[in-house]
Simulated scan of single mutants.
Amino acid sequence: MAKILDSVDQRTKLVGENRLELLLFRINATQLFAINVFKVKEVVKLPALSAVPGSHPHISGVANIRGTSIPVIDLRAAIGFQPMSDDQESNLIITEYNRSVQGFRVGKVEHIVNMTWGDILPPPKTAGSNNYLTAITRIETEGNTQLVSIIDVEKVLAEIIHYDIRLSEGVLDESLVSEMHGRRILIADDSSTARRQIKETLEPLGIEILETSDGLQALNVLKKWCDEGKSVQDEILMLITDAEMPEMDGYKLTHEIRSDKRMSDLFITLNTSLSGSFNKAMVEKVGCDRFISKFQPDLLVDVVQQKLREIV
């Protein structure tokens, strides 16, 4: 099992080339699910768990992994199925999202597949707004095509962990409040939970949020403005983009923007749940202006104020 992730550190070269690798797993007998390898720290057999009285009902308990206590989420229950039973094969996918480590209890862990973001599609609109998928794809296994559902882990976590959108005292620069009113920001993120968090943080300050759910949509909006003879900098204050998205990831989006002289000076912030040290290196490589971790309202406001100070 441990060998399945032995070469994760070597996989960083895929990012920036609009590619990704997915860890496939099952939570029932028929469906394949996946999450991005970059968010996975380790895969182990489910160890004995310690109960946590009063915890969220989807928390199965706490696992002790080499002296570290890790909360374990029953992923099957968290996305609307019956909880996993003790007689089912159970593995633990240990992940790091938004600066926190947690484990997801799943069934059989299959293997890793190498994909391009162009192969990753949004979930069908008929799935409704309350589904737990951020994207879908298809893979060939033994001559058969199988649908793979990519879990919106940020939504799962947001329903278990309360993310406070209140600003800390002293973060808001009162001298810039009037400058925020009427400004527009374009966001690109495939997670509706992440988009909502940005809106709930910035819209009360008078900022209008323009939403897109992947990098290609965002690029098309920007190109349309340019083709109409509009200045991108006049249309929006900045772009806030996720790293991982169907169709086109945030790194490729940034590269495309920087390669187009009509919009190459656009201020771009990478807003992601991926690990900080890795993304800071990628920010320098592709040319983002700022990197911030998701679900930190203070940082969202800080980056807006940074840009405003440059232009007022």
Rank of each mutant, 00 (worst) to 15 (best):
S175G: 05
S129Y: 15
T116L: 11
V72S: 00
L121T: 13
T134P: 00
N144V: 15
E169Q: 13
P124H: 06
I187R: 10
S100N: 02
V171E: 09
I93D: 01
E179P: 06
S175H: 12
L121S: 10
T95F: 00
I73Y: 00
I187D: 07
S168K: 08
R66G: 08
S168V: 10
I94R: 08
V153K: 01
F81Y: 15
I136E: 05
S168Y: 08
N91F: 13
A77V: 02
I93M: 04
P123K: 01
W117L: 12
R76D: 14
E110I: 03
V171P: 04
L133V: 12
W117N: 11
N131L: 06
E142M: 09
D87I: 09
D86R: 14
V62C: 05
R105I: 07
A127Q: 06
N131H: 13
I139H: 11
D86C: 14
T95M: 02
E174F: 12
S129E: 15
I59G: 07
E154Y: 00
S129G: 08
Q88Y: 13
L147I: 09
Y97H: 13
G182W: 00
E110F: 01
A158I: 07
R184C: 11
M84S: 15
H162P: 05
G182V: 00
S100R: 02
L186C: 12
E179N: 11
S69V: 03
G182I: 00
V177K: 13
P124Y: 01
G67A: 06
N131C: 12
V106N: 07
A188E: 09
T137P: 03
N131Y: 08
V153T: 01
A158R: 02
I120N: 07
T141G: 06
I136A: 03
V106E: 04
T126V: 14
V148S: 00
I136D: 06
K125A: 06
L92S: 08
Q88V: 10
L147E: 09
N131I: 10
I112L: 09
H58S: 12
L172A: 04
L92M: 05
S175K: 14
D152V: 04
V62A: 05
N144W: 10
G107P: 01
I185R: 10
E174N: 14
S60D: 11
R76S: 14
D173A: 11
D87L: 07
T116H: 13
D152C: 02
G107Q: 07
N131A: 11
E140N: 12
I112G: 01
I161A: 09
V156P: 06
I139A: 12
M84G: 10
E174Q: 14
D119Y: 04
T68Y: 11
K155A: 03
I185S: 07
V109I: 04
G118A: 10
V153R: 01
Q82C: 14
L133Y: 13
A78M: 04
T137D: 05
P71M: 01
I160E: 04
E174M: 12
V171C: 07
E96V: 06
Y132K: 05
I59S: 09
A158Y: 04
R166F: 10
D87R: 11
I139Y: 15
V156D: 07
A77Y: 04
S175I: 05
I65F: 13
R184F: 15
V113L: 09
S90V: 01
T137R: 00
I59W: 05
N131P: 15
A78I: 06
Q146D: 06
T145I: 11
Y163K: 14
E159W: 05
